[in-house]
């Protein structure tokens, strides 16, 4: 259904543009047709979403990038924070974006809806990139942005490099995949149909939350965590040095006792948030954990229960 609406929108928009631009004379019509077949490459691109920020940095030349979202240079959530330094930041408000006069705007499907609709209404060239939940989504998003940037070749290359690296990671499999679980602040866990689940599976782990029937993100009771006894617990990087209510479960005596019987892994959050080729860093980091786990099991001779 959404695809249909997008298509309809596209058709109506194109029709409108042709009618508006072609009314003066046939010469103009021919000009429009020519410019449609060989449309100019965007020269001023603005991104208002953390994930499109990163894909844009990977696919476009720096001079073309006019502005990124204000989150782009925060190294606790953006995997390419360093690359974003020195590029103008925006806060996703229609006014500031309009004044930049961009010829392409990248947005997420869940960010600043009113702003996106307003910019569309004002005839800005805006593409909405969906949230990636799988590797296929990542390829799709790269191709989508590459096409809008007229950087198809670069997109192809990026996807190919991604696939080669992914195949390499998938090739290192061991027969018995260990069970892992995400356990974060507020006993928040991540189940099936998510990017994190895809990364976990690619690294050869089973996702306990997904096997318990959780799709998307959900809550994992401490009791369930202890009774299901996963081989590794994956938690995010500590945010507040003084602790917070959200991390209370980590201080729980039951959790403290359980921690000693299992492997705790902290991950680098920025690699897990957005669907970019950088998720392969996360996959490779987890692969190392799995190999270590297999090594310790071999030396102690204890298979996981």
């Amino acid at each position: 259904m959404p695809a249909f609406f997008q298509w309809l929108d596209g058709v109506l928009c194109a029709a409108k543009k042709v009618v508006v631009q072609c009314s003066p004379s046939y010469l103009v019509l021919i000009g429009v047709l020519l410019s449609c077949t060989a449309q100019a490459k965007p020269q001023k691109v603005v991104s208002i979403n953390l994930c499109t920020d990163q894909l844009l940095l990977l696919l476009a030349d720096k001079p073309v990038i006019q502005s990124l979202s204000y989150l782009a240079s925060r190294d606790d959530i953006s995997a390419l924070a360093h690359e974003a330094v020195g590029i103008r930041k925006n806060h996703g408000l229609a006014e500031e974006i309009m004044l930049m006069q961009p010829d392409l705007i990248l947005a997420g499907t869940f960010t600043s809806r009113p702003t996106v609709f307003l910019l569309k209404r004002l005839d800005f060239n805006i593409i909405e990139v969906p949230v990636a939940r799988s590797f296929a989504d990542i390829r799709h998003n790269i191709a989508m942005i590459a096409k809008a940037l007229h950087e198809e070749q670069r997109g192809e290359q990026l996807i190919q490099a991604f696939d080669t690296r992914l195949a390499l990671a998938l090739a290192t499999q061991v027969p018995q995949p260990p069970v892992a679980v995400f356990y974060r602040e507020n006993s928040y866990t991540t189940g099936g149909n998510t990017l994190a689940h895809t990364i976990l599976e690619a690294a050869g782990f089973r996702n306990l939350a997904a096997e318990m029937g959780i799709s998307g993100s959900g809550h994992l009771p401490l009791e369930a965590l202890i009774t299901q006894h996963p081989d590794i617990i994956i938690s995010g990087r500590k945010r507040s040095p003084h602790g917070s209510v959200a991390t209370a479960a980590f201080q729980h005596p039951a959790f403290q006792a359980f921690k000693t019987q299992t492997t705790m892994v902290t991950i680098s959050d920025p690699l897990w948030i957005c669907g970019t080729p950088l998720v392969l860093d996360a996959v490779e980091n987890l692969l190392k954990v799995r190999l270590q786990l297999a090594a310790t099991q071999q030396t102690t001779g204890q298979p996981t229960p």
Partner: peptide, 10 residues
């Protein structure tokens, strides 16, 4: 019930 943190935030 929001399965996606982006939806909950929105």
């Amino acid at each position: 019930l929001a399965s996606n943190p982006f939806i909950a935030l929105e």
